[in-house]
């Protein structure tokens, strides 16, 4: 692999972002307000970030982020910590593979798209399609999320994605879910989840604090009682949420509802294989 980061449309390594990158020891700070181009283009920012990663920085602090997309996509250093101040754009941490990203603000859509491992901590809201197809790692959202969150999360072996939403989630939470855990706390009031919850889910589990009506469930999803193992998992996630945000979390297990697949083969009788 070439050790050159090449923003779109430039043949050579980007240097227009030089002045915004400050490295002290193994800590990097990227202040977007110092960029000659305002707002800084995402290709430049990602290029500068990759430069910091290649220099082996263990932490990267981004200041003044304003909608720049695809930050830290496929970033793979397990010990890397990235702090994002401002509003990161869509696909934050897509295909993420190890690092921790902490957002001090709201995240836009598709945060943690198809992530493998690592953590994304959002001290605000994260909107639609958060955690799409995640296969591992953790997403913690202090506030609310949007529609179609946690679609098609899946687990395999030791990889098991988890997501904790402090506020609420809208419709189609956990659609096609094939593994992993989603926990919705519903803090701040309002219905914790919307309609078509877990539509077509055939793996994984969704825990919701509060009530879930049967009419809210999508096809293939069922309400089942929490097992002792489930309670242990919920408590563990609550602990991580508390550590991340320093917020009090309700620990009364009777308040939680578990939604799980009614079958791992929800549509197995759907097809007719007759040789006509």
């Amino acid at each position: 692999m070439k050790d050159v980061c090449k923003p779109k449309g430039h043949a050579h390594e980007c240097d227009c972002g030089k002045e915004c990158l400050k490295v002290e020891g193994d800590r990097a700070v990227i202040d977007l307000s110092l960029s000659p181009a305002q707002p800084m283009h995402y290709t430049t920012l990602n290029c500068v970030m990759r430069k910091a990663m290649r220099r082996g920085c263990s932490s990267i602090e981004l200041k003044g982020v304003m909608g720049q997309r695809y930050l830290a996509s496929t970033a793979s250093a397990p010990d890397l910590y990235i702090a994002v101040h401002g509003t990161p754009g869509n696909d934050l941490g897509a295909f993420l593979n190890g690092p921790t990203i902490e957002v001090f603000g709201n995240a836009q859509d598709m945060t943690g798209n198809t992530m493998n491992s690592g953590r994304i901590i959002v001290h605000g809201n994260a909107w639609d399609v958060t955690g799409l197809a995640a296969r591992g790692g953790q997403i913690l959202v202090k506030g609310d999320t949007g529609y179609r969150v946690g679609i098609h999360m899946k687990e395999f072996g030791g990889s098991r994605p988890t997501m904790v939403i402090g506020g609420t989630a809208k419709d189609y939470l956990g659609e096609y879910m094939a593994g992993g855990t989603i926990l919705v706390l519903g803090l701040g009031g309002g219905a914790p989840v919307g309609r078509s919850l877990g539509a077509g889910m055939h793996g994984g589990r969704i825990f919701v604090r509060g009530t879930v009506g049967l009419e809210q469930l999508g096809p293939g999803a069922a309400i089942v009682p929490l097992s002792p193992d489930d309670e242990k998992e919920v408590r563990g996630l609550l602990g991580e949420f508390e550590n991340a945000f320093g917020a009090e979390v309700p620990g009364e297990m009777s308040e939680y509802v578990k939604v799980a697949p009614s079958s791992s083969r929800p549509f197995s009788g759907y097809y007719d294989k007759t040789n006509v």
Binding site: R135, K154, E155, S159, E175, A178, H202, G203, S264, S268
Partner: peptide
């Protein structure tokens, strides 16, 4: 990267 025996669905 999915469990054995479950349907592999592509939305």
């Amino acid at each position: 990267m999915i469990p054995r025996g479950t349907d592999a669905l592509s939305p």
